[in-house]
Design a protein around this nucleic acid. Structure first.
Lengths: 215, 215
DNA sequence: TAGATTGTTAATCGATTAACAATC
DNA sequence: TAGATTGTTAATCGATTAACAATC
């Protein structure tokens, strides 16, 4: 049942379900129907039921879904039931933002170290995390059981670092550089292309204005 | 021809085309076929031709596409042929990263001011941009022809600010808070939910491990 | 002109929505 | 039991891919 590959579309929706269910749980609500969740999240009830059923039934006929249970199960699917050890590469503003943000969110994501090419930063700390020189990155990863490498550096540097860490035992790269990285299949890559996001926004602005000008 | 609504899937791919075409142009390559671009970008040539044709033909039979022209045209579609005036709300690490990043990219995105609830920051500058108190936000927007509001603040604050700026003449919100904002239809919203992205990554890790464990 | 490659139509595939039997 | 609501199948819709005629 968990065998078939789940479509990207479904996976992309899971974090949003997780977020909403967390909020609903915090409001003290114990159970919810797909119809009610549909109303809150502005998606069809049909889609909600289909999505959840990809992972086996979480609900009960005539009752609906137990909010806390559903929230937890989706968390498990998303891998949030375990701890994750990360290193940050690039200790600039963006890197600082990520470290500070992740720490206070505290969902099991633990930064173990930061790395930067800038010598002035070496030895300093960033949100409680020490900054090391780049040439210590690979050995640090190997000696500290690092699972995720976060790349908050420019694209040329990102390509080099991706190459460097490709030989280590990491499982994933969270990439903020504006380039598509080439890594072995066993390393998962998730891109956050901020400029792409901003372009989609300006597309929407232009599109909306055009639509209105026509009238 | 430009009348029909373009699907979200197509729009989402445009920035990636734009990025690759920029690189190809920088390499001094003048023309490219959909087959060659397909090889580089790892998508089907069919999809490339279909995507471009949503906006009218940019190519020429027997020749392919002129790289510079295609790049520029996609830029126009994405609204990159005009300047955009932004304000930043939230002058923390993330906000700083965005201001510094955007300035050096210089694609026509100009931050006019930053706003923050923290009094200590008022009057300081951030990447050349001055930080003002929150209660000056609305009047600043109205007096300075602001098009885009960037929200780099926590979710509760984001909801309040979205409400505040909903009455102004802005066209869009670029939202980094982990919440879906409710604003009038005329205001476009683009979300960057970093935690959603990170969850998709940990999903992929878990999924990959599970797949391998089965064998 | 002949070869190459687009633009576009048709076929396929996949995702979403609707419907309803199963069941709590 | 009756009412509610899921789980799941079937129908629809939309997006992707394949194929090829148009044309540079």
């Amino acid at each position: 049942m968990e065998n078939r590959e789940i479509s990207q579309a479904v996976v992309s929706r899971l974090p949003r379900y997780y977020r909403y269910l967390g909020d609903i749980k915090d409001q003290g609500i114990e159970r919810i129907s797909s119809a009610e969740l549909s109303r809150i999240m502005r998606v069809t009830a049909s889609q909600i039921r289909q999505d959840f059923n990809h992972f086996g039934g979480f609900g009960q006929q005539g009752y609906g879904y137990n909010v806390e249970y559903l929230h937890e199960e989706i968390g498990k699917i998303l891998g949030l039931d375990r701890d994750h050890r990360l290193v940050l590469v690039g200790a600039g503003n963006l890197g600082s933002a990520l470290i500070n943000y992740m720490n206070f969110k505290n969902r099991g994501f633990f930064f173990q170290a930061a790395f930067d090419a800038n010598e002035e930063l070496h030895g300093r700390t960033l949100g409680g995390i020490k900054v090391y020189p780049m040439d210590e990155l690979v050995s640090f990863i190997e000696n500290n059981d690092i699972e995720i490498v976060v790349l908050a550096i420019p694209r040329t540097a990102a390509v080099k670092v991706a190459e460097m860490v490709s030989g280590t035992g990491i499982s994933a790269i969270w990439n903020f550089a504006h380039i598509d990285l080439q890594v072995p299949d066993r390393i998962q890559v998730e891109n956050v292309h901020l400029s792409d996001s901003l372009m989609r926004l300006t597309y929407s602005i232009r599109r909306y204005e055009e639509k209105n000008a026509q009238k």
